[in-house]
């Protein structure tokens, strides 16, 4: 892939990822990741200090599947949805089919009564691999700018 196609491919991957979460098709969310993967939600302060633990941690696609089934069947939270606003990706590097990218995001949370807040902002730090014609995340580290999470974080970022 040349530079322009990489940019377009990653932007499209991000757009599809956001669409799946924001339109409540969470069952498709794990499919964006390779079977052995790393997905973390952390904060800028934790990330800068190299703190290892996360608000959400998964090192397999199975753990992402479990997140979704827990949200669907076990966890209790008030009805809410997200709207992701994604910036254009920055391609940090590419080697063969593998890429590293960084993408800024903002997530608006809409509660059932209409209360709408800027729930999270931050950046995705991604390692992306090509599997046939599809791009997948081998690693997606969600670095939230703020150390504070309002109420709870149920739906993934």
């Amino acid at each position: 892939m040349d530079t322009a196609s990489r940019f377009l491919a990653v932007a499209q991957l991000n757009a599809q990822y956001a669409s799946v979460i924001d339109n409540d098709r969470l069952e498709q969310w794990p499919d964006f990741f390779t079977p052995q993967c790393l997905y973390r939600i952390t904060t800028a302060g934790n990330f800068a200090r190299g703190y290892e633990a996360s608000i959400v941690f998964a090192n397999s696609r199975g753990m992402l599947v479990d997140r979704v089934s827990a949200l669907r069947t076990a966890n209790i939270y008030e009805r809410q949805s997200y709207r992701h606003i994604m910036a254009a990706p920055v391609i940090l590097g590419a080697q063969g089919e593998d890429m590293r990218s960084e993408t800024s995001f903002a997530v608006v949370r809409i509660m059932r009564d209409g209360a709408t807040i800027l729930f999270a902002s931050g950046r995705y730090l991604d390692a992306i691999v090509q599997d046939g014609s599809a791009l997948m995340f081998r690693e997606r580290i969600v670095v939230c700018d703020s150390p504070r999470i309002d109420t709870l974080l149920a739906i993934p970022l």
């Binding site: 608000i55 076990a74 209790i76 109420t151 709870l152 149920a154």
Partner: peptide
């Protein structure tokens, strides 16, 4: 052991499998 702790950190906190509800129930 450290990896176990990283995985089990999923149980607690704002996204915790067994503690996220505690973040909202006080508000209820």
């Amino acid at each position: 052991q450290r990896l176990v702790r990283l995985k089990q950190a999923n149980l607690v906190g704002p996204a915790g499998y067994i503690s996220m509800e505690d973040g909202c129930v006080g508000g209820f």
